[in-house]
């Protein structure tokens, strides 16, 4: 890629001699893992919904599982993008939907009830991770102290003087025009 890119450049343009380190903050790594997990799970739900419904004793709900798969893939791609925060929040919301669907399968007459319980436990764990990721990738982490800038007008002679000068110029222009 660098080779191709260099062909696009003029001969004199600076070229890389030695590359500096790449920085990836830990919060972004978590978001990446969750994003890929989301895409993997989504693909499974989309392509093999029957395996999932059979394991959970939810036969007949294949369409729902497929729809959830689409949702997972969407959230996953979003979590891998620069808008990872929105992606992770959509995962948190999705965990809620998953939990609700699983709860409805926790019927006494479901022979796979123990599997459902296990799945619920997993969703709970993942939801915690999603929530942590969403918190950590939020713009301006809440723990940071905030500096306000009420004294930075940018007008060395003060705001009032700047306004007055502008009014003078405008009235001059008017007088000049009439």
């Amino acid at each position: 890629m660098y080779y191709v890119a260099n062909i696009m450049r003029s001969e004199g343009d600076p070229k890389i001699v030695r590359s500096g380190p790449r920085q990836v903050p830990p919060a972004d790594r978590l978001a990446r893992s969750l994003g890929w997990f989301s895409i993997g799970l989504g693909a499974l739900e989309l392509l093999a919904p029957r395996r999932i419904t059979r394991t959970l004793g939810m036969q007949g709900d294949e369409t729902l599982v497929r729809a959830f798969g689409l949702r997972e893939i969407f959230s996953g791609i979003m979590s891998l993008s620069v808008d990872r925060n929105a992606g992770l929040w959509s995962r948190v919301a999705g965990d809620g939907l998953d939990a609700a669907a699983l709860m409805s399968a926790m019927r006494r007459d479901n022979p796979k009830k123990h599997n459902v319980a296990l799945a619920l436990l997993m969703v709970g764990g993942i939801a915690l991770l999603d929530y942590r990721g969403a918190q950590e990738t939020a713009q301006r982490p809440q723990n940071g102290r905030r500096r306000l800038y009420p004294d930075r007008s940018g007008f060395p002679k003060g705001l009032a003087a700047a306004k007055a000068a502008a009014q003078r110029v405008l009235s001059h222009a008017k007088a000049g025009a009439s």
Binding site: E11, G12, D13, P14, I16, V17, R18, G20, R22, D28
Partner: peptide
């Protein structure tokens, strides 16, 4: 994407 690094590069010259 989201990968900007401080690199050592060749100096520019008059072209």
């Amino acid at each position: 994407k989201e990968d900007i690094r401080c690199d050592e590069v060749t100096d520019p010259r008059i072209e």
